[in-house]
Amino acid sequence: MVDPQRILSVSELNRMARELLETSFPLFWISGEISNLTRAASGHWYFSLKDQGAQVRCVMFRSRNAYLDWSPREGDKVEARAVVTLYEARGDFQLTIEFLQRAGLGNLFEAYEKLKNQLAAEGLFAAEHKIAIPAHPRQIGIVTSPDAAALRDVLTTLRRRMPAVNVIIYPTPVQGKGAAKLIADAIRTADQRAECDVLIVCRGGGSIEDLWQFNEEIVARAIHVCTLPVISAVGHETDFTIADFVADVRAPTPTAAAELTTPDRSSLLNTLLQHRNRLARSMQNLLQQRSQHLDYLSRRLLSPMQQAEHKRQHLSQLRLRLTQAMARQLQRQHQHLQAVQQSLAHLNPRAVLQRGYALVEKLNGELVQDSNQLAPGDQVKLTLSKGSAQAEIRDKGT
């Protein structure tokens, strides 16, 4: 409580009033019509919200309005999430706007969340239903309006990244009454024809009302039953539609969808060049290794002439060794022969005869070695060193 006897300054009064207002009014929603809209150089927005009976000053700071994907205009019916405050310097009562949307969007968001929860419960968003996007599609289908800027973005990106890929457009309105059914029909037509490897469903950015056709159940179910892999590229990066959740892949923009469906030609060529250079280096290294190995083998390999020379040298060595062996063998045999000859010479009876002895034989050739072999009157033959003689035995001793 303020002491009634206390004299307040204007600044104190305004500060106390601001604190009272901010604590008494939590964050709340308010609806009204925009008037006196001013966009300051600082980026802040200043305007009034009014209805038939009153108006209130508002400010939306740049840190908040930067998140809006649409720009309000004079006379727009809006719904704002705000807090009550007081601008102390002038004592102006005002609202600080935290979020701003077009009037009626609350119902749209409610419908959006309800359908999203229903389809999620049915399993339409489940990962096991997702189909992989082919890495190198030969033909790409696009479901969109022929006049849409999104189509030009997609085609430009495809020509830049992979000009050889074929494109089939399945034209359909993407905005307005009845567009959801036509979009679903175009998706079913692409699926039935089965002439594409991947299907892009796209449109450019816009308000939630502009994108609402892609939040319709008929479009979600058409995407779900499509046997072609589907990429949803609706609106800007911050926009999320039911189609995004059902599709096999969500692309933040149509341009990003084109990038997802095609490899970058320049990147492929660069990768191919890198592989070629790596292969060339590998081949060069292999050839150098084989060349070095060949040099090593060639140093070990002898020519036929060198081999013949080695054989001749070996043969000469064998001949020399054989000759030496034969010579040694002949020498040993000669020595043995001499020894035998000496032994024979010693045993030769004629050698004994040469010393004056005689060999006595009976006439029948019997060698007489014992006198008992003889009797007086026997005729014997005497063999001398030179010649022989006959004799008669007259007497014999013992």
Rank of each mutant, 00 (worst) to 15 (best):
D3G: 00
R6I: 04
L8P: 00
L13I: 02
R18Q: 10
L27P: 00
F28I: 09
G32S: 13
S35Y: 15
N36I: 08
R39G: 01
G43S: 13
F47A: 11
Q55H: 13
V56D: 00
S63L: 06
S63F: 04
L68I: 05
R73F: 05
V78I: 11
V83S: 15
G91S: 04
F93Q: 03
F99L: 12
L100H: 01
R102C: 04
N117Q: 14
A120Y: 00
G123H: 12
G123D: 09
L124Q: 05
A126S: 10
K130D: 02
P137Q: 02
D147N: 14
T156M: 08
T157Y: 00
R161V: 15
N166Q: 12
P171M: 07
V174C: 01
A180Y: 02
A180M: 07
I183K: 11
A186D: 06
R188F: 10
Q192V: 15
V198Q: 06
I200V: 15
T227K: 11
S232T: 02
V234L: 02
F245I: 03
S267Q: 13
L279T: 14
R290A: 12
L297V: 12
Q306V: 02
R321W: 09
R321G: 12
Q324I: 05
A325P: 02
A325M: 09
M326H: 14
M326S: 14
L330G: 13
Q331K: 09
Q341Y: 05
S343Y: 10
A345G: 05
H346G: 10
L359S: 06
E366P: 01
V380D: 01
L382Q: 06
L382A: 12
A391I: 04
